[in-house]
Computed example of a mutant assay.
Amino acid sequence: MQTYKPSVSLIRATSYESAALRESLTTLLEPLGGITAFVKPGQKVLLKPNLLTGARPTKECTTRAELVYEVAKMVIEAGGKPFLGDSPAFGSAKGVAIANGYLPLIQELNLPIVEFHGQRYQTVSENFNHLLLCKEAMEADVIINLPKVKSHLQLTLTMGVKNLFGCVPGKMKAWWHMEAGKDANRFGEMLVETAKTINPDLTILDGIIGHEGNGPSGGEPRNLGILAAASNVFALDRAILEILNVSPQKVPTVAASQRLGVCPELDAIEFPLLHPDLLQISDWRLPDKLMPIDFAMPRVIKSTFKHLYIRFIKEPMNTYSRG
């Protein structure tokens, strides 16, 4: 009996320039069947970038607008109807996107942006029956996950699985840090359950320029020169760890996915283009010191008020002044 092996496509890529990036994405997706293997005419397609913050637009804290633009164009050419969606830590998805240079692509392609903080939620699983996900994400016909590879002060690294935590609405993410963050194993399992439930059709990881050190926002840009794609987000994350020379046990999401039996071993993954060994580096900088995952109640309250201030006062004022 033939055993299914998940496939992770890896290439070297060094440019966000439109023509070069389009060629890179075409090459990257070709072994997976191209974009038409994932998107059919008329389908609603969620593009889920990492829209962490608008505070450091030059520090590679978010998925590059150029990458989202090229993927969106490919979706449109395949007959799909793309929209952007996320729930940033601070501010609105639209505000963070605009701060990071997304406005021209939003306007040119007429891309809707859905704020994942509405009231239409869906429960994740029996093990986490009060963890809710935005139905706008769950009701998309196709989900294309567009993470940025970054070091992370609490989780060592953030890649494909962690990026899907953005489908948890608004400040519920902070409450989950408080509820599950005292146990890194449980927090990792919560993120894995979230990713399993969302089950993205395709993950394309932005690793042309990553973010190393004290991420997800306090580190510095790092030229990494890779793009990765897979239909299995757990296999993709495992492959990236091999490139960065980081043990799976140091990353709660990957360790949890291994415990739960959803992360394949490296030798059980197909690499149709480049093997991770050919892209491996030895000097990727992890956080100087890991911080606790859990948020104390005062921090959650402070974070909530800051989020509300940015969303309802600061961003509207900036929009008014630009107008």
Rank of each mutant, 00 (worst) to 15 (best):
M1P: 12
Y4G: 00
I11E: 06
I11N: 07
S15P: 12
A20H: 05
R22P: 00
R22D: 10
T26S: 14
T26F: 03
L29T: 10
L29P: 10
L32N: 06
G33M: 04
G34C: 00
I35Y: 02
A37T: 02
F38S: 02
V39Y: 03
P41V: 06
G42E: 03
G42S: 07
L46W: 09
L46Y: 08
P49R: 09
L52W: 00
G54P: 05
G54H: 00
A55R: 10
R56Q: 08
K59C: 03
E60V: 13
T62P: 01
T63W: 10
T63V: 12
R64E: 10
A65E: 07
Y69N: 14
Y69C: 12
G80C: 02
G80L: 05
L84P: 11
S87Q: 04
S87N: 10
P88T: 06
P88G: 06
S92N: 02
I113T: 07
V114N: 08
V114Y: 12
R120C: 02
T123W: 00
E126F: 03
L131K: 00
K135V: 08
E136T: 11
M138D: 05
M138P: 07
A140R: 08
Q154C: 11
T156K: 11
G160L: 04
K162A: 08
V168K: 02
G170N: 14
K173H: 06
W175D: 11
H177T: 13
E189M: 15
L191M: 15
I198H: 05
N199I: 08
L205I: 07
D206F: 02
G207A: 15
I209G: 02
G210E: 00
G210Y: 03
G210W: 01
G213H: 07
S217D: 13
R222M: 10
L224H: 09
A228E: 06
S231M: 04
S231E: 13
D237T: 04
I240G: 03
I243G: 04
N245D: 15
S247R: 11
K250C: 05
P252C: 05
A255S: 12
S257H: 04
R259K: 15
L260R: 12
P264W: 07
E265C: 01
L266H: 01
L266W: 01
P272Q: 13
L274H: 12
L278P: 00
Q280G: 00
Q280C: 10
S282Y: 12
R285K: 15
P287L: 10
M291I: 03
P292M: 08
P292Y: 07
F295N: 11
A296W: 04
I301C: 09
H307K: 13
L308C: 01
Y309Q: 04
F312Q: 07
E315P: 09
N318Q: 15
T319Y: 10
R322W: 08
G323Q: 12
